[in-house]
Design a protein around this nucleic acid. Structure first.
Lengths: 718, 718
DNA sequence: GAAACAGGTCACCAGGTCAT
DNA sequence: ATGACCTGGTGACCTGTTTC
């Protein structure tokens, strides 16, 4: 149903006019759109959302020098790199890849590892599915332009729309148009190259800055280098086709720095005219058309001219038609100022879409290390030798990961995280095992190992090896870092205490009181209590999201220790995690719900009553969580069982996006067998425990959905 | 995209002004906003969609004759009645009441049951949320109109949105169309009052009833009576799009969540300005007009422009005139807060109205008979005595049900259905057993009965009785009607054949070819093949929805035969069905998916290849359904097992809205025990079957979600 | 003191203008 | 004829005042 989408790389083949003397007037654009049919769902998984913010940071800049390979060395030097979009206060960044003519979608990445050429589009394309060739001329209905960059006549925009997707329609051989389609969630990145180009220099000049957090130093100032860009500020200055000094009183409509484009011709919009964002030209044209009821001369071609800025005056009939088709109408005019909520909603939607988009990349990054993630490029300054990617099985991989994830942490928390790194290293040298959020299994005893192994009765060999490997991993993980920052401390404390009083000692957890001012950062599930109610919704959202970052990371770490999990394809790993992270977290957080006292203990150690939380906006979900927790607690599982159950939960995650279904199923079967055997052994007198446990799976699925919905609702209209 | 669709009945609506000299242009409106954060969810559940069509049927008609109490008896006779909307999947029924002036949108339906007046608009309303009376001027963001009530010149609409909103477009002064608008989440309830400002008293009339579910007696035919509504609470808080983010001091005048509309232009009113409920725009306009004593330019037309939100700025003279005509005046200013008593009365009235609307009446109706449906207001002209509702337990309830549902069938299919009604009656008198969609258990052998009974080892007595009762029910159900119309014949054939060749004989099903021209009406899962691609999306949608009506009805019947199910509260029954109907249907339809041949057999008997379906727009969901089917088929369950599994599926449905969780759980446990025992008996050598079956539950949950999403997307962008 | 409205403010847009 | 600017009207918010 929803749309799709020429494959993103198609453009690569087409290279317009190589040699390309004039810098041809055609503007090229790219649109990436998210192809996921499950857009809504993807938007939802709340827990993961917090991650997005960090993505930009984790990512080093991509430095592209196409000059050597390009036929037109000087003109075809392409740039690509992270462009940050600033929305609201949050430095959420989006990797935006520029592209253009020949080779435009590939960049040479220079980071701490060896330089390599990668397709910059891929990262986004895979997210968004529409990967338009450089010849795109039109791109109507772009809702938000949130970032841009210019290089040598090319404008780069990164746009995320909301609720809409685009479908490329090719027209002749040169012009492509996009037809609007509804769509839910997702991100579109939009890159536009301009013909009449601003000089590359203008583009490169500044922005050497980066908000690169603690670690990233400025990139080498190669000419083509694009650093990240705090935002659209540039756009108003440089990007307007007509060199207008678009400073203060520009007629450009911006939304928090994002520039809106004319729905008719793609020019920069001056406002919301006759119901659509339109430029002055199209506004005037439409006005005259309707005022004087002009009948335009028949189109000389096929009455289906593509209307773009540069040709909009060539065919009045088609232009007017286009105006109508995009919805211009006297009935649609809006007077007065833009309602705040509308603005807010737009921002939120952008945010959501961006978060979504970034989720994938980050998740992949965390999972598989930088080398598999095209954008995860370290700055040249970092120690390239030490951070060279290691294979997943390498003993170092885990610590590599933690380092990677650390670099992804947003600035405001970076310092605290980095301070932990020493500890990590120490830990990796064989310190006292510690437990973190998802290492239930760290306490696996020899006996239970046997239990696990014995579970493979029906399928001896492979299973045994599997479990052995798991145990190895667990052991190793006990010595390796996983938690970051303040979160780590708390969780470590908590888990330790909890462990002392198995199975679940809420009381001991309650003792943990943190007075730290970073409490809110380490406290998933604590939106309200730590949040300033006066803050705008999206800020609250950001904070809440951030608070989940460490927890999500834990889930990833946990997943990696599930024997067999890493044998799945990256794609499947990512999708299982996307679908199942919330559910695993839910299982993990069960002990935090005190049914008797009707309180929830946040990881900060604070307890909040259900009533308070309800009064602060918690809804039905909270009740359901309590219900779930009560039932799960009633089963009296120990850590080992919980751990195994968590693994089952994760691996039985939604399969809709899984490539290797049978592989996942096999893994799930193995896990379930193990779980059953373990349960049978521990609860031999309670035959129903295993069944009850399985029945928790659909409940978790539902909780996940509710959660998603609440988040969506929250984000849409806080 | 703009879309819309003057609604189909507009022609019928005729004269606004009959009786009504000026047709007084003023319209006052009210909007209720729904705060449910789960709005999205409700929209989604796809399977429920099919039901919508029946809603009107299940629901008794509310006929309001305002004549006696109305100030203008003849012109202001209003009618209100149930219009079903459907949204969601499951038989989630949204009570939708159409309304309008006499004869405009209402027809008297005469079928096998008593004649009654129904709103003709409902069909459209449910689909498009377009059901505006001629006086509607503005109605932005209305997504679904699911309920309304009229009292003394007030029209009440309850609207739930889903990702789309509509904007009214006026056509001349009488016809309105709606243009689609994007919108995300939330619920809007919309109440529109008729033009000639009704007195407050008329509005407040009764509402004495409460939402007592099962006990509600027939409503007195009070003119403005509003019946109860379980979900009313939902409507209060937050989702109105125009709502300000932080509730507090919004400029929107609300009464307990209900929003008042501007008397001048129909926009959302911000308060009572210059003696009239008016929006900020008209308030400001009037203020400027009088402050500066502006003499506006003469109207370019006839000085009788209709003033609605979308055109209010086109003719200042007429706008000002309208302001004056609706009573705006500096002399009419009311300062200070609204007198408590007046406010209270309004609140009460509103709340009651909302309660009425939201009642899940149809499902309840289907389940428990008509008398629980609040809107059952008879017209003075209908035979009120004969229509007195019978108690839920009355022996007639079942046949009442079918009759009622039938009466809801849209006119074009009504005839065929009504022809079946005689049959139904005969069936209820003990005819030859037949099998229908959900009577897997009808073939339960004595042996398997024992199996079931033996399952209650752990919990002897109650279980045995339970199963016995089930079997009784099954037997009885064999003699009772369930299917309607052509669907019935097909399904009966199919099931019979299928039964002859257990467990699943697709081949025999394939033999069934229907040449009937109503095939598409009886064919769930057959959107595309039967649909004229040229039809507008909403028509396709309607057809598709209709095709599910019988199937959903079967699920309800099936549920009723699950032992213990009817012991649950109505509320819980309804909610289990709402959440689980799709899943049950999915299980039921598994044999229709031929994995080897990659075809889907529709109930019409036609097979369609996956590729064809994909080419017609089927998406990932189809693949997942195939996957699911393959796995489930692989388990080789027989009918009995499938039946029991279906029961488990239904009872393990999403619990988020369940009142008596432990009751549902107890039932589920019993069912699961029975299932396990049955499976163990039949598949003693395959220990994993039961486990695998349980693992199907989360998969079903996910399919349900995907389905919901696709439906949503489909509805949004057909 | 809170609720609720008149009036004020100013972000925004339709429409007009006029150099191109 | 086009479209960058200008002008005047609009209406979303805000403030001050009135009333309960």
């Amino acid at each position: 149903m929803p749309v799709q989408t020429p494959h993103g790389l198609q453009g690569r083949t087409s290279s317009v006019t190589e040699g390309h003397p004039t810098g041809s007037p055609t503007a090229s654009m790219m649109i990436f759109s998210n192809s996921s049919s499950r857009g809504v769902t993807e938007v939802v998984p709340a827990s993961t959302i917090g991650v997005s913010d960090q993505a930009p940071r984790g990512r080093a800049e991509a430095l592209v020098d196409m000059a050597s390979s390009s036929p037109e060395p000087k003109e075809t030097t392409w740039f690509a790199g992270p462009v940050s979009a600033h929305q609201g206060s949050q430095p959420s960044e989006l990797l935006v890849c520029g592209m253009g003519r020949r080779n435009s979608r590939w960049v040479t990445v220079k980071d701490n590892s060896k330089p390599r050429t990668e397709c910059l589009d891929w990262q986004i394309l895979q997210e968004t599915a529409i990967g338009p060739p450089h010849t795109w001329h039109h791109c109507s209905d772009i809702l938000f332009l949130f970032s841009c960059q210019i290089a040598r006549g090319y404008r780069f925009f990164c746009v995320i729309p909301c609720k809409e997707a685009f479908e490329v329609k090719e027209k002749d051989s040169e012009v492509l148009a996009l037809s609007k389609k509804l769509y839910s969630g997702g991100v579109i990145a939009y890159v536009c190259s301009s013909s009449s180009a601003p000089s590359p220099e203008s583009f490169m000049s500044d922005s050497s800055n980066s908000r690169s957090p603690s670690s990233s130093p400025p990139l080498p100032t190669k000419p083509s280098r694009m650093t990240d860009l705090p935002t659209a500020g540039l756009l108003s200055k440089r990007l307007h086709p007509r060199d207008k000094p678009l400073a203060a009183k520009s007629s450009i409509t911006k939304l928090n720095g994002m520039v809106l484009l004319c729905k008719v011709c793609g020019d920069v919009a001056s406002g919301f005219h006759y119901g659509v964002h339109a430029c002055e030209g199209c506004k005037g044209f439409f006005r005259r058309s309707i005022q004087q009821n002009i009948q335009y001369k028949k189109c000389l071609k096929t009455e289906s001219c593509t209307i773009v800025r540069i040709n909009r005056n060539r065919c009045q009939q088609c232009r007017f038609k286009k105006c109508l088709s995009v919805g211009m109408s006297r009935d649609a005019v809006r007077f007065g100022r833009i309602p705040k909520r509308e603005k807010q909603r737009m921002l939120l939607e952008m945010q959501t879409a961006m978060n979504n988009m970034m989720n994938n990349s980050q998740l992949q990054h965390v999972l598989h290390g930088a080398q598999t993630v095209p954008c995860a490029i370290e700055t040249s300054q970092s120690d390239s030798s030490s951070s060279s990617p290691s294979p997943p099985d390498s003993p170092r991989s885990s610590s590599d990961l933690s380092r990677d994830s650390e670099s992804v942490v947003p600035m405001d928390t970076a310092s605290s995280c980095s301070s932990d790194s020493g500890e990590e290293d120490a830990a990796s040298n064989g310190r006292v095992p510690r437990e973190d959020l998802f290492t239930y299994s760290s306490s696996v005893s020899p006996a239970s190992s046997e239990t696990l192994s014995s579970s493979s009765k029906e399928d001896e060999e492979p299973q045994r090896e599997c479990w052995n490997r798991w145990n190895d991993n667990q052991r190793r993980s006990d010595c390796e870092g996983g938690l970051q920052g303040p979160y780590r401390e708390h969780v470590t404390q908590q888990c330790t205490r909890q462990h002392e009083n198995l199975p679940y000692h809420r009381n001991s957890m309650n003792k943990l009181q943190t007075g730290g001012n970073r409490g809110h950062l380490v406290c998933p599930m604590s939106v309200s209590p730590f949040v300033d109610p006066c803050k705008p919704g999206h800020e609250i959202w950001e904070e809440f999201s951030k608070s989940f970052i460490p927890a999500v990371r834990e889930v990833v770490e946990f997943a990696k220790r599930i024997p067999g999990f890493q044998d799945l394809s990256q794609h499947d790993q990512v999708n299982l995690l996307k679908a199942g992270t919330f559910e695993v977290l839910m299982v993990r957080f069960v002990p935090l719900f005190d049914v008797k006292e009707r309180t929830v203990t946040f990881l900060s150690g604070r307890k909040y009553s259900v009533d308070l939380l309800h009064s602060m906006g918690a809804g039905e979900l909270l009740n359901c969580m309590f219900e779930f927790s009560e039932k799960l607690m009633a089963l009296q599982l120990d850590e080992e069982e919980m751990s195994l159950f968590s693994a089952v939960v994760l691996v039985s995650a939604d399969r809709s996006a899984i490539e290797n279904v049978s592989g996942v199923e096999a893994l799930q079967e193995a896990l379930i067998r193990a779980l059953r055997n373990l349960i049978m052994k521990n609860h031999s007198n309670e035959a129903a425990v295993f069944t009850k446990l399985l029945l928790k799976l659909p409940e978790l699925r539902s909780l996940n959905n509710m959660h998603s919905e609440e988040l969506l609702a929250f984000k849409i209209q806080p």
